[in-house]
């Protein structure tokens, strides 16, 4: 199974740079997503947790685009990627505003100090 990934299986003819196998692009997306999950779970700094979420969203985007590429550059996948980018922008803005409001009350961004559910 692993060997079938590592074998260079060129993508379908007719799309740009067919020598790049789509499965490698998917593998890269998986790796980035997993790094994002790791950061989300292990880091204590809330702002780095947000950065990990951005990494995961990027990996999801890359997956959409890889699938679109396999379907002869289907614009459907690109449209979804655009929506993901929009959602990421809104999420970053709202998340960072939350973070500032929290910092005002705690003077720290350590997630381990967030142990009670009241403003």
């Amino acid at each position: 199974m692993i060997a079938s990934i590592l074998a260079v299986l060129p993508a379908a003819e007719g799309i740009p740079n067919p020598s790049i196998p789509t499965s490698w692009v998917l593998l890269l997306a998986a790796l980035l997503f997993i790094l994002g999950i790791y950061g989300f779970l292990v880091r204590r700094d809330l702002i780095v947790v947000f950065m990990s979420i951005e990494l995961m969203l990027n990996a999801a985007n890359l997956t959409f685009l890889a699938a679109a590429r396999e379907r002869m550059l289907d614009p459907e996948g690109q449209v979804y990627a655009i929506f993901v980018i929009t959602v990421a922008a809104v999420e970053a803005a709202v998340g960072l505003a939350l973070l500032i409001a929290w910092f005002r009350l705690r003077a720290t961004l350590d997630v381990e100090t967030a142990v009670e559910l009241e403003g």
């Binding site: 379908a12 007719g14 799309i15 679109a68 396999e70 002869m72 550059l73 289907d74 614009p75 459907e76």
Partner: peptide, 12 residues
């Protein structure tokens, strides 16, 4: 992953 559809809707 079953994405390998040779006849997509894209304008290659």
């Amino acid at each position: 992953m079953p994405v390998a559809v040779a006849t997509g809707r894209g304008a290659v």
